[in-house]
């Protein structure tokens, strides 16, 4: 029997990000319109395994997923031991633009979830012309802290276990067990302090409430998809953005905060019509 490889190619990209050399892990599959995918805080690109393996998507889209620096198989930059990791809106925007540039992507579609769903609102606000369309998964303009993030990084609590514990309830109770625990595994594996450092953007630095009214959801082809079980980025928060920007929004039944990873098939049934619409407009 021949080896059962998935149709995904994984490679390491060397590039300069924010003025520092980086070694970044990137997976891709398919051909056609580039679809650049952004994972959630404290996780990595494996969240998009369902999309990368779905022919209905990869027949028309080149799905590209990178692990952010410090996440997954991407290394932290040299000298990381002498600094505290903190994601900022400025750094995150720059990272996405520089990676899209290094990959020479021509007007990609960008799709991000959670912190990725937040940063795409910044892209819609400041850089809409660089993207064919923008898809926000679990997008909220702001999330106020509802627990003390100091618990996520201290030597007397296992960082991976507590991070998984914090996010476990964000997965819909109806998600298949295998995908629920795969999703949690990415958190169980996360580097020390990385989830907390991403939440600096999510809960402190990345408050875009004051700029939502300046986003033109139609001109930027902004689509919003949010799971009904997400109590972090709520349905109400997403619908409010849609109302104020003119973006198209849909609340997804039976899904939570990690739709592409917790129940890939259910999520793809919501994503396909959006991708068809974007392709039709091209």
């Amino acid at each position: 029997m021949s080896p059962r490889f998935e149709p995904i190619t994984g490679r390491y990209l060397n590039l300069t990000l924010l003025g520092r050399p980086h070694r970044l892990y990137i997976e891709e599959a398919g051909q056609g319109i580039p679809l650049l995918c952004l994972h959630t805080a404290g996780s990595d690109g494996r969240q998009y395994r369902g999309l990368l393996n779905d022919k209905r998507i990869t027949d028309n889209y080149r799905v590209i997923v990178f692990d952010m620096p410090w996440h997954g198989k991407s290394s932290p930059p040299e000298g990381y031991q002498n600094e505290e990791y903190k994601l900022t809106s400025r750094g995150y925007i720059q990272m996405i633009l520089e990676i899209a540039g290094a990959l020479e992507l021509d007007k990609p579609v960008v799709m991000g979830c959670s912190i990725g769903g937040r940063i795409v609102l910044y892209l819609a606000h400041q850089h809409a012309k660089r993207f064919r369309a923008i898809i926000g998964l679990e997008s909220a303009a702001h999330v106020a802290p509802y627990y003390d993030v100091e618990w996520l990084h201290r030597p007397d609590v296992h960082g991976g276990e507590v991070s998984a514990g914090v996010v476990s309830g964000l997965i819909a109770p109806t998600a298949p067990d295998n995908h629920r625990w795969e999703t949690l595994w990415h958190y169980l594996q996360s580097g020390p302090g990385i989830f907390k450092g991403d939440l600096h953007f999510y809960k402190v630095d990345g408050d875009i409430r004051g700029k939502i009214d300046e986003i033109d959801g139609r001109a930027s082809n902004l689509y919003l998809l949010t799971g009904e079980y997400d109590y972090s980025c709520t349905s109400e928060g997403t619908l409010d953005i849609a109302k104020r920007t003119g973006a198209e929004a849909q609340i997804m039944k039976g899904l939570g905060h990690f739709p592409m990873s917790e129940d890939p098939q259910k999520f793809i049934s919501y994503l396909l019509p959006v991708l068809e619409k974007i392709r039709g407009a091209a």
Binding site: Y146, Y147, S168, G169, P173, E228, Y229, Y231, S235
Partner: peptide
């Protein structure tokens, strides 16, 4: 939704 986890209750 909103009732499935103690953090949702928080």
């Amino acid at each position: 939704p909103g009732h499935n986890d103690i953090f949702a209750l928080f």
